[in-house]
């Protein structure tokens, strides 16, 4: 693994981000708009003496943005290279897929962290909810787990796009929101119908959101939920890498990888 090549890919990500109004809007502006929407809704709930529901909503929103931004960053980085027919140049350089995803994961984590901090300050200033009242240790655990999940889903989506081409490119920004209700980001899992609850517990994020709500209410750590989340995240990450390698190989076998830029 070469640090220089990872730095080069991070530099590319940085250059794209500063030059691309689309990326700025998708990552930051879209996040702020959604935050304000949820923020005003939470003010309405507080007004109706639903303080707890309002806080769940804002907490869910802050944490969900970590998943959305991280996944978006990992997936859309590849899309830029496909759209500009630069992907072949990248993949015929000595860069390995491990270096490629390490760089894009780091970039995704940095973007997700930046958005989280800015969003958290906005919620504090405008909606009087401080996520920093939660333990820093808990926030760290939650962030790492959510970020790892976002990276795993990002890698899976890149694998799908490499395999099936740009006809499914909307997965890069449109697939993860499907998981939002399923992972009970804004409400307790118990709200979901029983069959969906079983499904929800397949995702590590569900455990994080549940543990977060408990921590917000009681400042307690649900170690069991956090442990399950970590284990699931490890499995998801390994699975995503294997899934990507499998689809990347199929893509090169069928010639789809080269055709993606045709």
């Amino acid at each position: 693994m070469s640090i220089k090549r990872i730095q080069a890919l991070l530099a590319q990500e940085y250059f794209v981000t500063i030059h691309s109004l689309e990326t700025f809007f998708d990552i930051f502006v879209f996040s702020f708009i959604t935050l304000f929407l949820y923020g005003f809704f939470s003010l309405y709930l507080i007004g109706n003496e639903n303080m707890r529901a309002a806080q769940y909503l804002l907490l869910g929103m802050l944490f969900w943005e970590i998943v959305r931004v991280g996944q978006y960053s990992v997936s859309v980085a590849s899309m830029w290279n496909i759209w500009f027919r630069n992907l072949t140049h990248l993949f015929v350089s000595p860069v390995s897929t491990l270096e490629y995803f390490t760089a894009h994961s780091l970039s995704g984590v940095v973007k997700a962290f930046s958005v989280f901090i800015i969003d958290a300050i906005i919620t504090l200033v405008f909606f009087h909810f401080s996520v920093f009242e939660m333990d820093i240790g808990f926030l760290f655990l939650a962030f790492v787990n959510l970020a790892v999940f976002s990276i795993s889903t990002g890698i899976v989506i890149v694998g799908l796009i490499f395999r099936f081409g740009t006809r499914i490119q909307s997965f890069a920004w449109g697939l993860v929101p499907i998981l939002q209700p399923l992972t009970a980001a804004f409400f307790p899992v118990s709200v979901l119908p029983q069959p969906l609850q079983y499904f929800a517990y397949l995702f590590p994020t569900t455990y994080i959101f549940e543990a977060s709500r408990l921590h917000l209410d009681t400042h307690l750590y649900d170690w069991q939920a956090l442990f399950v989340a970590v284990i699931l995240n490890i499995l998801y990450l390994i699975g995503s890498v294997l899934f990507f390698q499998w689809f990347y190989t199929i893509s090169r076998n069928t010639g789809q990888f080269a055709r993606n830029e045709a």
């Binding site: 070469s2 220089k4 090549r5 730095q7 080069a8 890919l9 530099a11 590319q12 250059f15 794209v16 030059h19 691309s20 830029w80 290279n81 500009f84 027919r85 630069n86 072949t88 140049h89 990248l90 350089s93 000595p94 860069v95 830029e261 045709a262």
Partner: peptide, 22 residues
């Protein structure tokens, strides 16, 4: 049939590839 990344400058593109090739 393959180009470089259009969203960034010529120098930035070349800098990226200089890094990739160490």
């Amino acid at each position: 049939f393959n180009t470089l990344l259009g969203k960034i400058t010529v120098y930035e593109n070349l800098l990226v590839y200089a890094g990739l090739y160490e």
